[in-house]
Amino acid sequence: MRHLLSIEETPREEIERILEVGRTFLEISRRPIKKVPVLRGKTVVNLFFEPSTRTRSSFEIAAKRLSADVMNFSASVSSVRKGESLKDTVLNLEAMKTDLIVIRHPSPGVARFLTTFCSSSVVNAGDGAHEHPTQALLDALTVLEQKGRLDGLKVVIVGDILHSRVARSDLFLFHKMDSSVVLSGPPTLIPPYFEAWPAEIDYDLDRALEGADVVIMLRLQMERMKGGFLPSLREYRERYQLTKGRLGLTKPDAIVMHPGPINRGIELSHEVADSSRSVILDQVEKGVAVRMAVLSLLLGGEA
């Protein structure tokens, strides 16, 4: 493995390997001295063209716990687009002899574009609405820790599927692991042609939740109202908010996940967000572990 660009093109064995290594790294983060010398002398660049606190810090902490040197580069696409091209920006960073570039960018396919001219390893930390592979991996590790398996589960993903890279990566991952995926949300955000995906679509959330093992709630972007995708927040809440009552439709031990940041009172009710069924903070912890796994497998030689 040289890059991590998408879950769709990562074979199941690779995914299992990352999760296995991730599990061992969980333990390191729980030690009093949370550092191992795995990547000593390696340089990791976090190249972020979209605001992100959680993913960027998670990658940063992961790299530091492996003893790598980390540099953060944040910029907005508009400021960069006017001057230096993305390619030139990356080539300049690479000239400082970097080993791995973590990139987040609003344009789908950007991580792959980097691999056409970069000699560093590239990790996709979210490319537009395409994929966010480490999010899917941390979701998988969370589920694995909670359920002890990744196959034979019913996973329901709820909300703005159309614009969500998390939905895509999760969908491909759980499908690869032989779990079934149901997508739920308004049809404007799950156009009918999504039926060609390896997932079921159910516009009725109550029905979709029946017998679910895992519920993944997506963040609703407020600008979707202006885009004509939704009439109002109130209507969305009525139909698609995960409430305590709706949670009763799932299996009794079903878990609730969310890639964050959450809109309390919109996609999740307060009780659900703070309930024992919610594993949202757990996901954050697993995020550091899987990112450590990805970095070490990409840079640690024997991967």
């Binding site: 769709e8 789908p108 396919g109 490319d127 537009g128 609405a129 395409h130 994929e131 159309l162 890279r165 895509r168 156009p191 042609y193 999504f194 039926e195 060609a196 995906w197």
Partner: peptide, 12 residues
């Protein structure tokens, strides 16, 4: 093109 295939790629 808008299609099941390109929707996977996340391209508008």
């Amino acid at each position: 093109n808008e299609s099941p295939f390109t929707a996977r790629l996340g391209l508008r």
